[in-house]
Design a protein around this nucleic acid. Structure first.
Lengths: 212, 212
DNA sequence: GTGCGATGTATCGGTCCGATACATCGCGGC
DNA sequence: GCCGCGATGTATCGGACCGATACATCGCAC
C-alpha cells in the first residue's frame, strides 16, 4: 500500500522523505493516521533497489541565486523513474482482495484521478460488495447472536452497521455518478487559483447538504 | 490489542484457538475484519509463556457418557489464570495513547461491560478528543489545501469528515448516558428473546431512529 | 547566546497479516 | 459402501507496518 502511495505521489513531483510524509498525511488523512518513518524509509530503500525511484540531486533551484543560504546537508530527494511509472500503472490496474479493505480502498480512491473510469467503477463496485458483506455479517450478529452479547458490544455493532449502511449509500452515489459519464480522469488538476467555479465536470459525490 | 481481547474472552469461558477466533470475530466484527491465525497462535504462546493462560485438558465433558465417539486429537483448550485476570484488570485500567486509536478503542469498548464507570468515561472522552483532532485536521485540509487536491481526494476527505462528526455525536450520547448514572456494568446480559421492549436500562447510545 | 520547535534522516524490536500446509470430522450423493 | 467437500482445527513463515528512539540542523524568540 505504501509503495502504491509513494509511487503515486512522486508522479506529481520529486520529494524528500519528510515532505512525502506530509503529503501522504494530507492526502490520506481521512483513512489512516500518519505513516511512520519506520515504514517510510525502508520502503523508499526498497523502491530504489527495485529501480522504481532514484535519488535526485538536491535541486539547488537556480543555484547561483540562492547560493549557500543554507548549506543543506542531508535532504535526499526522490524521483520516480520510467519503470516506476509502469509499476504504478500496473498496481492501479490489477485489483487483488486487498484492494477492497479499508486501507487499500482508501489509497486507491485517493489516486482515482490517475485511474481510468472502467477501473474506478470496478473498484467502487468491489468495495461496495465487500461492505455489503460486512453489513450482512453485522446484521446476523445483531439478529441471531444478540442475546449472547452485552449491551456495549451490541452498541458497537450497531454503530458499525450504521457506518456500513452509510458507506454503501456513499458508494452508490459515486457509482451512479461514475456511470453517468463525465467524471474527471487526469484532469490536470492544477485548477490554479482554486475555488472550482470552473467548468470541470461534477465532482464525485455531490449531493451534499450543508446544514443538518 | 490481541492480548487484551484474548484475556477478555477467556475470562468468560475456556476456549480453543478456532473458537477464540470465531468469538473474536463476532465481538469485534464492527471494527476489524477477522483476526489471523498468524497472530492468534503466536500470541497464545506468548500469553502462555507469561503465565496468563494455561492449557486445560480437553474437557471430556462427562467422559464416560461420550467415550471415544471422536478420539479428539488436537484441540488445545486455553484457560485464563489468576495472573491473567490481574493482567487484564491492569490493561483495562491503564490507558496509553493506543487506547484511543480505532482498533484500541474498539477493543476497549467491546469489554466495557467489565470496565468500571470512571474508566469508561475516561476512555470515551479520550476517544472523543482524538476524533475531534482528526476532524479539525480534515477541516483544515478541506479549507486551506483544497485547491492543491483533486476532486476524488477531496471527496474522500469529506466522507472522512462526515464519519468524524458522526462519531463525535455518538460519543457525546454515550458520555451523557454514562454520566447520567445507570449504565450496565456486568449486567448479566441475558435479555433473552431479543427485541428490547423489556425494561432494561437505556443501553448506551439509544436515540435510534428506525426508518430514514 | 541559548533554548526550543520545526525540519530532516535513520534504525530496531515487536505486532499483526496473508499465504500456505496439513489433518480430521460429518454429511450428502452416487 | 465410499468419496468428495465444507467446516473444524493447529501451525509456520515472510513481510508490512508501527512506535520508540536517536541524532543533527535551522530559524526564531526571549
Amino acid at each position: 500500500m505504501l509503495e502504491f502511495a509513494i509511487l503515486g505521489l512522486l508522479q506529481e513531483s520529486p520529494m524528500h522523505g519528510y515532505e512525502l510524509r506530509k503529503e501522504l498525511t494530507a492526502k490520506l488523512g481521512a483513512i489512516r493516521a500518519a505513516i511512520s518513518y519506520g515504514s517510510l524509509y525502508p520502503t523508499l530503500r526498497r523502491l530504489q533497489a527495485a529501480g522504481w525511484i532514484t535519488e535526485a540531486a538536491e535541486t539547488p533551484a537556480t543555484a547561483e541565486e540562492v547560493p549557500a543560504l543554507t548549506s543543506r546537508r542531508g535532504r535526499v530527494v526522490y524521483k520516480i523513474t520510467a519503470e516506476g511509472k509502469e509499476r504504478f500503472a500496473q498496481l492501479i490496474a490489477q485489483a487483488g482482495p486487498e484492494t477492497y479493505d479499508d486501507t487499500g480502498f482508501g489509497v486507491h480512491f485517493a489516486f482515482f484521478a490517475r485511474t481510468d473510469q472502467a477501473t474506478r467503477l470496478r473498484i467502487l463496485e468491489g468495495r461496495r460488495r465487500k461492505i455489503e458483506e460486512r453489513r450482512e455479517g453485522l446484521r446476523d450478529v445483531l439478529g441471531r447472536a444478540a442475546e449472547r452479547l452485552d449491551a456495549y458490544t451490541l452498541e458497537l455493532q450497531r454503530h458499525g452497521l450504521d457506518a456500513c449502511e452509510r458507506e454503501v449509500r456513499w458508494l452508490e452515489e459515486l457509482i451512479a455518478n461514475e456511470r453517468s459519464g463525465r467524471a474527471p480522469t487526469v484532469p490536470d488538476i492544477g485548477t490554479a487559483g482554486g475555488r472550482r467555479e470552473d467548468n470541470s465536470p461534477p465532482p464525485p459525490g455531490e449531493t451534499r447538504k450543508e446544514r443538518p
